[in-house]
Nucleic acid binder design. Structure first.
Lengths: 343, 343
DNA sequence: GTGAAAGCGCTAACAA
DNA sequence: TTGTTAGCGCTTTCAC
């Protein structure tokens, strides 16, 4: 209830001076500033962001749009964004599409566009034309983290290269029968990432003179359960079984490993498994993976946006974020019997 | 750039009528409403939440305060809150303390109190007196999910009962040598939950005529890695080894299982493990657990808050959220040799 | 170094 | 059903 006015009255100053003092602007006598601060404390003054937002046109808040919250990658990007924002004194407004069930259109129209935010980070989404237009209208700087899309600048790893790196690691070990657990994720979310990783897989195979078998690319929906289900399906395919599996995310890889162990087989003796991400559980699960740093990607994207809000530099594209092959013991050369069979 | 005024000019109406039409208030001719809507669309009108917030005193946003983001429980509560909010047309502002590193005081003073939110959900935090005072000043309805604290109403499971339930399950199987992996979490965050679960453990043991060995309660920091580390420590204690372990969270239980398997032992043949939470991975890991539903808790808390904002009912306390023992195969009677030794 | 006054874009009486 | 008129609490010229 206490506003800048009470403080003005209390200190015998004008609201203008109080406002300046509170924000620590120059051109205010030091004693005045401290008097104002003291009064503010005493009165329990709480600034109104609506009022200052209205007056300045800036909300000091950044939006983050995610398909769903509950995914390793998103959560880690969020942490990175949050850390950067906290330092800058910005608030974080989280918009979730709510997965396939949540209605996407409403989020775009209702929330994001209420001019509550100064900038937007989008995670792994590809927009449809209407959405692009809405975003255009809103006129705040935007950046996509995690999946490239047409018409929006993007920060993240080169997914195709990462997919190829994972596949090449398996090829290098001598595998030729390599399956892929990818994912359409759900309902049009996140389509760029799985696509590119799959492309990398196919290209790496082709480069090795192997053509991808269609029935060996299965959908793991980018979740543990999905990966497990997909792997079960792969194992049930009687007769011909791959010797290695490349999962497009660690969470799916964990699921795959679980399914393999359930089936009485061993990793990597019977089957090698590699993932992408660098999930914390990876070390304990001994998962070989292509690791990336979503925290850093989130922080970097945020720093770019913040710099633009400050009127500093502007970039239209960014170098790919780094990734790194981490070899642990979920991958090994194919079993001897198989090797003989192939040669 | 387009405001309510342009629409007023364009349609030949007053801003008041436009405002009413845009919000779908009654007492506006249907044709007028649709004319306004059309004009708004055509002009690409985007409402300013700052302006309407200033005028109404409501921001239509709810704050969520978390110790860190990256934890199974928090993420799932967030999903529940978000789902409820999306439906109500509210935005979600996420405040993270940023773990032990982030400075807690700043979050409280700077952000939350900027009157940007109409209500607040706090996850698993216990406040110090200064923080309580700040919250009091801010005057919005608040509710804590996940850990009871003095002076704030709270929603969540009865942690003591859950701890006892887990311990009793092990006792019921015949275990008498039961260790506990709990956690201080980090730096004063989240102290109520681990404390109560530990209390439940001790009480259940006592009720069975067993006194808890101090060296068998270890800190797993509520993380996978922490649980793994704690379990390793427990196993290295030469000579006397427990026959069962109760971990205060599934994530720690997964870490413990990993450590046990690493050590060449088997679950549940050599050691039984039980957790608390109901993590998705639990089924695949075959973890017996006391499961709870954080999504529901988040959604319920949000519904309560929203009802209060609407001037409907107000409650000062809530029934405990349900939990349920899910028996899978990480728990079994103690090994025969051990059993003989004890009897 | 400080004050007066005019908004920022919307909502909410009160009239008409 | 619609318009008029004040604000909401802060920032920001422009004077002094």
């Amino acid at each position: 209830m206490t506003g800048i006015q009470e403080i003005a009255r209390e200190t015998g100053l004008s609201t203008a001076t109080v406002s300046r003092a509170l924000r620590g602007l120059p051109n205010v006598k030091a004693e005045t500033t401290s008097a104002v601060r003291r009064a503010a404390d005493r009165l329990g003054y709480i600034p109104s962001s609506a009022a200052s937002g209205l007056a300045t046109g800036r909300s000091r808040a950044l939006g983050v749009l995610v398909p769903v919250i509950n995914r390793w990658f998103y959560v880690n990007v969020l942490e990175g964004i949050d850390a950067e924002l906290r330092q800058a004194g910005y608030d974080l407004i989280l918009y979730s599409l709510g997965g396939p069930a949540g209605d996407r259109e409403r989020v775009f129209h209702r929330s994001i566009l209420r001019r509550r935010i100064d900038a937007l980070v989008v995670l792994c989404l590809v927009f449809n034309p209407d959405e692009s237009e809405q975003l255009q209208l809103a006129e705040f700087p935007t950046i996509v983290v995690g999946g490239p899309g047409p018409g929006v600048r993007h920060m993240g790893i080169d997914d195709r290269a990462a997919g190829a790196a994972a596949t090449n690691h398996l090829l290098g070990l001598g595998h030729t029968e390599i399956a892929h657990i990818g994912g359409e994720d759900e309902l049009g979310l996140n389509i760029a990432v799985p696509l590119e990783r799959h492309n990398g897989y196919v290209e790496a195979l082709n480069a090795a003179g192997i053509s991808a078998r269609e029935e060996w690319t299965v959908n793991g929906a980018f979740s543990f359960e999905g990966g497990q289900r997909a792997m079960r399906g792969l194992l049930e395919t009687a007769g011909h079984r791959p010797t290695a599996v490349f999962a497009a995310s660690d969470e799916m890889a964990f699921g795959a490993i679980t399914a393999i162990v359930e089936a009485g087989l061993r990793v990597p003796n019977d089957l090698s498994v590699i993932g992408i991400d660098g999930h914390q559980y990876g070390a304990a699960m001994r998962l070989t993976t292509v690791s990336q740093n979503p925290y850093q990607q989130g922080a970097d994207a945020t720093r770019v946006l913040l710099a633009e809000l400050d009127g500093r530099e502007h970039a239209d594209s960014f170098p790919s974020a780094p990734f790194e092959l981490i070899v642990r013991s979920s991958t090994a050369p194919p079993p001897a019997s198989k090797r003989d069979a192939t040669w």
